[in-house]
Nucleic acid binder design. Structure first.
Lengths: 190, 190, 190, 190
DNA sequence: CCCTAATCGAGACGGTACGTCCAGTCTTGCA
DNA sequence: TGCAAGACTGGACGTACCGTCTCGATTAGGG
């Protein structure tokens, strides 16, 4: 038992799964703005209190429901060639941000973080995107002998497509091949 | 007369100004999440219907209230030196995104656009940031003889600090001097 | 000129008629509860202020619009035979209260008078029904040599069908022939 | 359990009582026209939704709040003497209609029923007054061997003071003693 | 095998914003 | 000055969701 005393009825794992599933479904069906705690509980066939017992915000549920998907979708295999890895990563990133359900959840969370400091704190200092880019960035850095901070390099890589996705551009507008080249050039210059 | 017919009581300019002013104030005082149409109307000393008559969403009011400020804060004088201009612009951009009230409004709107397609449509295909960068980008492009699209170049310039600001970094974490150099390097490489 | 000064544009008789007409129509179409000053003005093709300039309440307009119709519908010719006159009057009264548009207006006004003292004052001490019964009551009184007050006799005549109509009974439930006989009996007894 | 299933939080009896009490108070204080669902909820210290959950209209609340009082105020003890019983009943009726708070509520409801068919349906085919008169009417009918329908006899009894009260007369104008005699005369004649 | 305790679904609770509607007033230009 | 038009402040409407609460029922350990 993880809590202080093992007494009392244990948490229902099926209820937890039903809630996470319901959030995923509802986000796609009605969008983040129309996503409500009430709606989530009803869709999950779960009491309202049960939701509040384990999560504080819809953002928290959404985070838990989508972060694993996000990590999975953004994982790229190493090829040994930094250029190819960067390009592959950028392709996965753009697909994630503009086409994926998990990406829609991520954008919604970033959006909510601009409104609510509590959500901003939830997303924390290292976000999912930065984490996903860590290996690619490290490989690119050693290939170019750049001395930049990881965070700066990450921003250079993620920033441009992130900006384009959040200001409404679709995948077709984003030239990941050129972005990959320019990213490596920029690293080499520093 | 500017509207269809000169008949009927004309729109009250003072009511319009009071609403825009109230939104500005309330955004700072209570934050976007706690900003309500009811609260705006009451703070402005204006009937609720008067707000709805001219604006559909709080995002629409906020847009009208902050876009001029944003344009003003992001305007940079030309120096003839593309490097200095880019650096100056990035400095202004980071200050705008992380410290300015108008920037907080802008971030809130970008956030809301991730939740609500109607707000996404309001922000449209060319956002305030892209517009503000247009001259600097053009100057940098002619200085480097780059052949990139304006939009791509703009994303290259704005993207990195935009990503950092929206994922919670403060101005101190953002190295605009290096970003400026890297931006010009990237342009030259293409 | 009938008012103090002949200066300025005189009252528009067509506007007055349009308002009264609109009230009559709307009462039938939407019922008293959904009858609004705004709706009346729009239906009449008249400015809102014009309505308020000449009438204070919708009850006041309705009163002016329906009182003539009421008087007309309740007028009964004398036959010389008090019994026949009473019965004819009661028949007209029941038709008025349960089937006529003017009667619906009258019931609505009586209803409103129970809610609003100002409307109660408008209907005054002698209502349309009492007035309409005056001649019949007088004839019956002289035929029976009764010494009752006019008001008491009127209540005796009008009260029973009035009660039945206002508590939802239709014309079929009201036996005017028997009521007429009983009214005369009651008069004779006093 | 009295409702369908025993699940969920049971209805709060204190909230129900507070609402009924608030309606009673507010009717006296502000009158029926100024009686609002919002005002009732606030006065009762109850959420607005709680009111709407159990009642559809202010008329429905008022009905529930006043019908017991009405029945109580209109109950008359039997004396064995039909004449005395009728006179006592008419006295109680006139006091109820012209002086009592419950009577004001009843008049307001009758008034509203003239405006709104839903309220008319609520008051139904047998109203409180008719019910209260049932015993007296039955006694009078057997004392006079009258063959009238109960409803007709009830209208004869209640109608005259009902008409006088609803057209603004006060108790002083209503001669219950004479009305009682005339009612019995009318019964005997049929 | 009960006892204690925490969870579960359900749904009512007090509150509050929503967006709409109407009241009654006002400010235009035209007649 | 009256008039149609229509914007103004103000406030009730009925709905929806918030986060909390109180039910009966369920499901585990510990005595």
């Amino acid at each position: 038992m993880v809590d202080g005393s093992g007494r009392g009825r244990p948490r229902s794992e099926s209820a937890r799964a039903a809630v996470l599933h319901a959030v995923d479904d509802l986000l796609v069906e009605v969008g983040y703005a129309a996503l409500t705690m009430k709606g989530i509980a009803e869709r999950a066939g779960v009491g309202r209190q049960t939701v509040y017992r384990w999560w504080s915000h819809k953002a928290e549920i959404l985070y838990e429901a989508s972060v694993l998907d996000a990590q999975h979708e953004l994982a790229v295999r190493h090829s040994g060639d930094a250029g190819k890895d960067v390009e592959a990563y950028l392709g996965a990133l753009v697909t994630f941000l503009t086409r994926s359900h998990a990406g829609a959840a991520y954008r919604a969370l970033i959006g909510e973080a601009q409104h609510d400091p509590e959500v901003a704190a939830l997303l924390g200092s290292r976000d999912v995107l930065s984490d996903s880019a860590a290996e690619v960035v490290e490989a690119a850095r050693s290939a170019t002998a750049a001395t930049l901070s990881t965070e700066h390099a990450t921003a250079l890589l993620i920033g441009p497509p992130f900006f384009q996705a959040l200001t409404g551009r679709t995948a077709e507008h984003i030239d990941t091949k050129t972005l990959a080249e320019q990213f490596l050039h920029a690293l080499r210059a520093s």
